[in-house]
Write a protein that binds this DNA or RNA. Structure first.
Ligand SMILES: [Zn+2]
Ligand SMILES: [Zn+2]
Ligand SMILES: [Zn+2]
Ligand SMILES: [Zn+2]
Lengths: 135, 135
DNA sequence: CCGAGGGCGTTACTTTATAACACAAATACC
DNA sequence: GGTATTTGTGTTATAAAGTAACGCCCTCGG
């Protein structure tokens, strides 16, 4: 897994990305730091610096409502400008999807307002199917 | 100003809401705290507790990508289940709007997934018209 | 060789948010 | 009225998330 079409990650970036990919879900910066203590990580900045780059490359998304980060589910999200996330408040599961039409509508609104859009955050909170049935 | 159709605010809730309404834009919890020192506020919890209720009542929205709070622009947002925000990264201006269609599309997606939606966060970052023209 | 830029490591710090405990006021119930 | 329950409150202390500032080491293009 992980056919890297990536811009040459540095060692720290690769470690952080590995940690996030392996997690199969969102992690906070401090959780990543703890995971990487054995690899020589000592301070939050080491994590944040790597995360900044990974987000810039579209390989990692920041979940604003969770103060956490998650590996992109699409092996490189640079393609689709924006993504959306459904976050289960029961089990913590996060599904990334790409609601193109909804995003188009939002972009249309911004254009009509003369607002120059640079980043779109869409996060849905609720209960996932599994958790809803195991009521 | 402010035709109160409100669920009987307590003193602290009213103070916090007043502070936010008067600001004409988003404030962090700590900024509110500073504004209310003279009214007897001493600790963040006093602000956060009031904010929790105000958000619950739909009178205040939390801007996740800003860690800040803003008074609802529609004199009671309980009506429309979800709102969206365009946030100018230059001047900090925030416009609240209600992209019903986009929200419907998102809700449809969740329903198809069996995801029970409870809260929707839509935040658009970019440059507002005024700031974009005064390049 | 040298200078610029990028990544790195470290210390210290700021900002944002909660836990825990105790008391007061309102509400509900008999 | 008296008593339980809930809701709001004030305070101290602490946790969690994010950044500033500094100096070092590379590497790349002169
Ligand atoms: Zn993605
Ligand atoms: Zn779940
Ligand atoms: Zn609103
Ligand atoms: Zn602006």
């Amino acid at each position: 897994m992980s056919a890297e079409t990536h811009p040459e990650l540095t060692k720290n970036q690769a470690l952080v990305f590995g940690s996030l990919s392996g997690a199969g879900g969102p992690l906070t910066a401090y959780a990543i730091l703890d995971q990487l203590r054995d690899d020589g990580f000592r301070a939050p900045l080491q994590v944040y610096r790597a995360l900044d780059k990974l987000v810039e490359y579209g390989m990692v998304h920041r979940l604003e409502s969770l103060n956490a980060f998650v590996a992109c589910a699409h092996t490189g999200c640079a393609a689709h400008g924006a993504a959306a996330f459904a976050i289960c408040e029961r089990c913590g599961d996060v599904s990334e999807f790409t609601p193109e039409k909804a995003i188009d509508l939002l972009r249309n609104w911004t254009e009509q307002q003369g607002f120059r859009l640079s980043r779109t955050t869409i996060e849905l909170r609720g209960t996932c199917k599994a958790c809803a049935s195991s009521n």
